[in-house]
Structures are given as C-alpha cells and as structure tokens.
Simulated assay, not measured.
Amino acid sequence: MFISFISLSQEKLVKANGHNFNVYLKGFENRKPNTPAIIFENGMGVDLGNWNTVIEQISKFSPVLAYDRASVGKSEKVFQMPTVKVVAENLKAILQTLDVPPPYILVGHSLGGLYIRSYAGFYPNEIAGLVFIDPADFTETKNDWNDIFRKMDVPEKKIDEMLYSRLYQQNSKVDSLNFGPWSEAQVLNELRRTDFAEIAKLPLPSVPIYFFVGGKFEVPIERRSKDFDQEAFFHIKNNSNMERWKKLIYSSNRGGTLIYLTNSGHYIQRDDPKSVISNIKVLVESLKN
C-alpha cells in the first residue's frame, strides 16, 4: 500500500450513485472550454496516492482528477462486484456530480488500464485520449497465454494444468475485510476466462493511444515459479503484449505511441515519472492542433 503525499486540502469525499468516493482535483479553476481533463484510474486495490510522483506536475499544464474506487483507499466500502460497467457508471456519476464535463484523457495503470478501456467503450464520445501504463492486458486470450509457454517448450499437459490453476482454481470465498482488492481480482479473472469478451465488443474511440511498458523484471528469486523460467516468460509476454497493443494503436486513425522503458518495472510512474509527465504533456499539446 502506498502512502499518499497529496495535499489533503485537495481531497474530498463526493457522493455519487449513493456512495462516498474519495476524490482529488486540481487545476479546474483555470480550465478553458473543450480543454481535456485528465482522469486517473488506479491499479488493483491501490489508492490515488499511487499518482503522487506525477499528478502535481501534470496539473500545471492540465486539470486533473484522481479517485479511489469503491472499497479502496478512503472511499466507502460497497459490497458490489466492481465489474467494468459498474466502475464506468460510478466514474461517470462522480464526474457529473463534480460538474467535470468531457473531453477526457483517461490514464490507467495496471488494472486501471482495463477500466479506462471499458469507460472509453461505454462513452466513446467523451474521450480525447487514452494512456495505458503497464496495463492488465485486456487484448489477451487464453491461447495467447498458452503460446508463451509453447515458445518456452513447456509440455502441453503442463500448460493445460497451469492454465486451469490460474483461472479455475482460485479461492472464491469472499474476503469482506479486503473486499476491494479481492473483488477486483475476481473481476479480472472472470474476464480472462472469457478472453475479455465484454471489453472486446465495446467500440474503441478514434483518439491518440499511448502505451507505457515496463521492461524491468522485478520478481524476487524466492517468489519465482518452480514450473518455468519466469524471467524468460516475462520478456516473451511483454513482446507478445506489445505486438497486440501496436495493432490497437494502428486501429485508431489518430495514431499514438508505445514507450518501452527497460529500467522501469510495473510502477512506471514511480520508476520514471519524468517520462510519464513529459509524454502526457506531448499528448495534451497535440490535441491543441
């Protein structure tokens, strides 16, 4: 869990869809009409303090909003599964309650990448840009996953066993104490079982699309798999992901960019905040043309 260094004076609880959400805003007093607001979506079970290395600098050139999803951080605990539709509807309600109209640039880290892709599909006309920071791969299929192990010469029987263990042997007992992180993990697993069918059918707005990818392998030796070479798996998976993400970028007539950072791990906004800040600034500036 990260400690937030964001000024408490800029955080507040906002009631939307009948629940209280912790929200951080800055820079809206000077927002000009049709200027994009930057909306941050956190990773799995992580609060808005996750952005404390970049959000203050970004607020100097664009208005920003970050928030804690239900049952995470300082937001109210709500015993409702955080499906992509529920999360999108909650964010929509927050933005309406705060009178923050579109257009939006959505920035999502990890699981937040999956949620911003979904929001963009539900409300495509509101989106000016999409920024994915080492996202959970919403383009992946079970066969894509299996192909990584085939490239590593893992036997098919073992591949089947690992896939079954990954997707179908999870502990389904409700963790009421840690409901937000627990329930978000359940939602991600359910989407993986269906090859992200719910997201794949959503339209993708024709906007600039940025991907940041961390190339640094960080899993400690004691936590690595005994079944396969996890570092080799990491690099093959990264390459596989990037090939699909490039196709996603090409599918937009507004283009975009893929930024591969070899010295950054999963939390790119912490490992290389300057790159995140500068590239988001480039995106904002490009929308003025």
Rank of each mutant, 00 (worst) to 15 (best):
I94L: 10
M81N: 12
G121A: 11
H235Q: 03
K142S: 10
T257Y: 03
V78L: 05
T83Y: 00
V131S: 06
Y123I: 06
K247S: 14
P181V: 02
G255K: 01
L167G: 01
S176A: 14
E29H: 07
S286N: 11
E56G: 10
I39Q: 07
V213M: 12
G108V: 06
D137V: 00
K60A: 07
P220G: 05
L191A: 07
D175C: 10
G180R: 12
L287T: 00
P63S: 00
V23D: 06
N30I: 06
M242L: 13
E11S: 14
E41M: 06
V187T: 09
F233S: 06
A197I: 05
S252H: 06
F132H: 08
K15T: 13
E231Y: 08
D68W: 00
E222S: 13
F233M: 12
F179G: 02
S59P: 03
N241D: 15
G108K: 05
K226L: 11
S4E: 02
N20I: 01
N178H: 15
K226S: 12
A200V: 04
K246Q: 14
K77W: 00
K142A: 11
A136D: 12
S176I: 13
Q10M: 11
K226D: 12
F5S: 13
D68G: 07
R166L: 09
N52W: 02
N171M: 02
N171V: 04
S240R: 05
M162S: 04
S4L: 02
N146I: 08
R224H: 09
I221Y: 11
V72Q: 09
S7Y: 08
E222P: 02
K237I: 01
H109N: 14
E89R: 13
F132I: 04
E184Q: 15
S264T: 02
M242Y: 05
F21H: 15
G43L: 04
W145N: 03
K32M: 09
I280G: 04
K32H: 10
L91V: 06
D229E: 13
N178P: 06
G214N: 11
A136C: 13
L177E: 13
Y164S: 09
K15R: 12
F138V: 02
K92R: 13
H266T: 03
L177M: 12
L8V: 03
V64A: 08
Q169P: 00
Q170L: 10
N143Y: 11
I159K: 01
Q170G: 08
A197C: 07
I259A: 14
S183Q: 07
L188Y: 10
R69M: 03
V84D: 14
L283P: 04
N90Q: 15
R270A: 05
D99A: 08
E161L: 14
E140G: 02
I268D: 02
G265M: 07
